[in-house]
Design a binder for these strands. Structure first.
Lengths: 214, 214
DNA sequence: GAGTGTGAAAACATTCACAGCT
DNA sequence: AGCTGTGAATGTTTTCACACTC
């Protein structure tokens, strides 16, 4: 065992995956082996054991892992137990999709505010929340001690929104706008660019072999 | 020079990023150095040079890279010149967001079909396309020789849709449903799970100084 | 002088293979 | 016998540092 609390980034990326796999498992299943979990997550079984070993000594030799322990430990390590609050800025189609996305609430993220500056959207109700103007964001963030800001605006205003979120004392930003945000020292920024994902896929599409430039 | 046409995955993931950076650049700027590009993309400058060197010898020593050459070469390498066709399955909020997303058409991906089995959505017009029942997918895919299928359905039906897409002879799938799709040998699958992204962020919430993943 | 292209080193990540526990 | 936890081996990615070109 090693628990010196420093989990490699590559492992952190897989922890939510393991958690997802465990959630699929029949509730009466009590134990699981690294081999079985690896199969569900589509990774190598040594990988699973190594990854889990960073969380402490969770398994029992000769037996396997207890599903509930594993689940708890993963949630704990990922900070899903604290129950972070989030706000979504921009309630176009993507923002609405995110607001409706049940997965968030289930996994410990409470969406406590939706913001947009389009007058046609303000006061609309979406997924049980009322859309408010961005000027009210600061208020909400203070009131609920919001840790996460989700940006689903057009690219043009994304940086401006990011700056405002940082002023609101937010700790992390999940950005869906197709721009690179300036990153400040103490705010974690993660970007998901839908069109970049497609471009990566595109590379792997077979196509007539490119001529080598000798 | 080396052009043996085998680009490491880590590099492929950064190519769309470089392309995005170049698109931001003033049209009259004719040359760019690895240092400048690295700054825009927020990576190390040696990384930029190494990555670009996989595409061939594109720069000029002592001078830098020509923006237009670089852009062309990146587009070529990523297969964005061929103009792949895509279909979107599931036109809830997320599917609509994707259909409206201008970035796709701009970058060589033509969305040629929207499909859904909800009778309330069929025949609706979204982003200039009419939503059709999934039974018509095969037709459209054949007609336009569609290479990419985008899944934006609820998780429950995602696997079923994936199977149908594969039957339609599609070559790649971009999956937004929060499930792990069975992967077949000859179809590339890329998944984006919105709630997993949040969970990764969450891990870094506690610990202010850790480096972001990816 | 400025800036690329690339060997070589360093850092990081995955996988093998097996000792050791149940 | 079965399965974990982990050294050691292997593979991949990043970074350094410098010869080389303009």
């Amino acid at each position: 065992m090693k628990n010196n609390n420093k989990i490699p980034p590559a492992t952190v990326k897989r922890l939510p995956l393991y958690l997802q796999c465990l959630e699929l498992i029949d509730d009466k299943t009590i134990g699981i082996s690294s081999k079985k979990l690896a199969e569900l997550a589509k990774v190598n079984d040594a990988q699973v054991r190594r990854d889990l070993s960073y969380l402490g000594t969770l398994g029992t030799r000769g037996v396997g892992y207890e599903v509930s322990t594993l689940r708890n430990q993963l949630q704990l390590e990922l900070g899903l137990v604290e129950g972070w609050s989030a706000v979504i800025v921009g309630v176009g189609n993507l923002g609405s999709a995110l607001a409706h996305y049940g997965g968030f609430q289930e996994r410990g993220f409470g969406v406590v505010g939706l913001f947009d500056d389009d007058p046609r959207k303000i006061n609309k109700q979406i997924a049980g929340l009322v859309v408010k103007p961005i000027s009210e964001m600061q208020n909400t963030c203070e009131k609920y001690n919001v840790a996460i800001g989700i940006i689903a605006t057009p690219g043009k205003v994304a940086q401006e929104i990011a700056d405002k979120l940082i002023e609101c004392n937010i700790k992390s930003i999940l950005n869906f706008a197709p721009v690179l945000l300036k990153n400040t020292a103490d705010v974690q920024i993660r970007s998901v660019d839908l069109s970049q994902e497609l471009q990566i896929l595109s590379y792997y599409l077979d196509r007539p072999v490119l001529k080598a430039v000798e």
